[in-house]
């Protein structure tokens, strides 16, 4: 049974027809202990065939720095404890400052519905709260 999810994730990724491994930086604040979701996502994305780096950050500025160092295509931030609007702003500011347009930003965790439009307006391409499937995340990354 356990392989079901992983196989579906692999197929989803396979369908997207990437010519090289997509690099994903998954990260969350070093204060936020809720790592169960992001660790699951990290495992699933790497099982699906992506290259996944998982870090914690003290300041949101570090996220973009790490993404540049790692050559990431995607930044995935997990946030279950508030402050997601601030982090969104800071990430976009840093990306703009560096003149980077091609890194996709996605979020997971507990994000109140009212904040979703604000985050999307600031360039977040996907927000994956409780109940989201790995396939949905892969679709957002590969589209």
């Amino acid at each position: 049974m356990a392989e079901g999810t992983t196989n579906q994730a692999k197929e989803e990724y396979g369908r997207s027809g990437q010519d090289r491994k997509i690099r994903v930086l998954l990260t969350k604040s070093r204060m936020d202990a809720h790592d169960r979701g992001i660790r699951d996502v990290a495992k699933e994305l790497s099982n699906a065939g992506m290259e996944v780096v998982f870090t914690r950050y003290a300041l949101p500025e570090e996220i973009v720095k790490t993404a540049i160092q790692e050559g990431s295509d995607v930044i995935g931030v997990s946030c279950s404890t508030g402050g997601h609007l601030y982090v969104t702003e800071r990430i976009q500011d840093c990306l703009e400052k560096e003149g980077i347009k091609e890194i996709k930003v996605i979020f997971g965790g507990i994000i109140p519905d009212v904040d979703v439009p604000k985050m999307k307006e600031r360039g977040v391409v996907g927000i994956f709260g409780p109940g989201s499937s790995v396939q949905e995340i892969i679709r957002a990354i590969t589209e």
Partner: peptide
């Protein structure tokens, strides 16, 4: 480091 997190949870 506290930005956005004070008193939240």
């Amino acid at each position: 480091e506290a930005r956005g997190k004070v008193g939240q949870v």
